[in-house]
Nucleic acid binder design. Structure first.
Lengths: 220, 220
DNA sequence: TGCAAATACGAGTCATCACTCGTATTTTAG
DNA sequence: CTAAAATACGAGTGATGACTCGTATTTGCA
């Protein structure tokens, strides 16, 4: 009963070989492309397998069904997003003035979203099956909870309900601008990102306490 | 060659009877429900026909294909949206102070969107076929162009490019909050709508010239 | 009243697709 | 070296769903 392999899970836990891990990664890469192009609903599992240079049978050796593919892909995205700007680093951001803070948060997220169109495709699809919605949730929570914590540090006096609403609204505001961010051609991107920050800054500064005045000269 | 029925269109223009118009309306009502529940991709034409109390054959007597249903539905929504707050009335809104203006614009739109979940379902679906995207466009243009005109009146000095960007961003900000607006339970709605207005007001007031001071007392 | 057009039906067609299964090959453990 | 486990294949299966078509009924019009 105390063996290390004793999992009460019903899944027949196979020992994965290195080859298998690699295949899974290839399949997820392919899935990301196909989802980005077709969206989850229209994407076909056979197309994913083909793009990965695998057969349908192989695909189903690693993923129970189509949804499991999206879930695994999402999980990978969440991991990568966490890595992209590490957890510890994040809370320090609350010490910065609003404008600098937004730079630090938004730039990496924009870069990540543009580098991973499959992530955007899954995240922005409003009618995914309930199971998939739950796969989406961690990704949304990720941003929401971080902002919530940052706001808590930046405005300790704010009542929690108000703070939570603010964080939620801010995340949705950003998501609203994501289509513009994703669609922008490279040269137009800075303009769009700048406007995004302006909008968020305008909104947040109505909720946050006024910033302490900055000395224009050097701080030495 | 100058007959009133001389249309170079390839469509075999049938004479529609009153019964036919009614059927089309019923089918569009059913389609709206099914799209709202399942989304466009998962919605089945047979389900739409069944919900309308019609047969598949009847459905295809009125609509060339599934996309045509969504296009017709969108066209109907755009018409209704135009009616909801008439064109002429709209420009007068630019004379109001920002806060009152947002009340006048946002309240009807929120009411419309909540009353027509099918509209939201089509509008928020990011991967519709290209033809459908073009059916969506008028709906998006509707809000964008109106805002653009209003901004032009409210801030004549603003360079057109800047004004257009502002209008586009504002519309996207609103769309970003739509999921919250749609998901809110009736009692929570005012809170969400209020926050929506706060966000838009904050953003727009950074672009618009400062408002003339209002006299707090009565104007008499 | 009678006929042509419009409306209505729904079983059937055909393509697509998620997923399976029998089998063949490669890897790892002993 | 060998057997079991893991990986790989891809034709096949069953379900679903968009759309058709032959036919029946209703309506508008002369």
């Amino acid at each position: 009963m105390t063996e290390d392999t004793a999992k009460p899970v019903s899944r027949p836990v196979k020992k994965r070989q290195a080859r298998g891990e690699k295949r899974m990664a290839e399949l997820l890469d392919a899935a990301a492309e196909v989802f980005a192009e077709q969206g989850f609903a229209k994407a076909s599992t056979n197309a994913i397998a083909a793009k990965a240079g695998a057969s349908p049978g192989t695909l189903y050796q690693f993923f129970e069904n189509k949804e499991a593919i999206a879930e695994a892909l999402m999980a990978r995205y969440v991991t990568r997003l966490r890595e992209a700007h590490g957890e510890a680093f994040d809370l320090a951001v609350a010490e910065l003035p609003l404008e600098a803070m937004l730079d630090r948060i938004i730039d990496p997220v924009v870069a990540f979203d543009r580098a991973n169109p499959g992530f955007y495709a899954l995240l922005s699809d409003p009618q995914l099956a309930p199971e998939l919605a739950s796969a989406k949730r961690p990704a949304q929570k990720l941003m929401f909870e971080r902002l919530d914590k940052i706001l808590e540090k930046k405005a300790p006096g704010l009542p929690p309900e108000k703070r939570t609403l603010t964080a939620e609204v801010a995340v949705h505001l950003f998501r609203g601008l994501l289509p513009m961010i994703m669609a922008a051609e490279e040269p137009d991107l800075p303009k769009v990102v700048k406007e995004t920050k302006r909008a968020l800054r305008a909104y947040l500064s109505t909720t946050l306490p006024p910033e302490p005045r900055r000395i224009t000269g050097s701080g030495a």
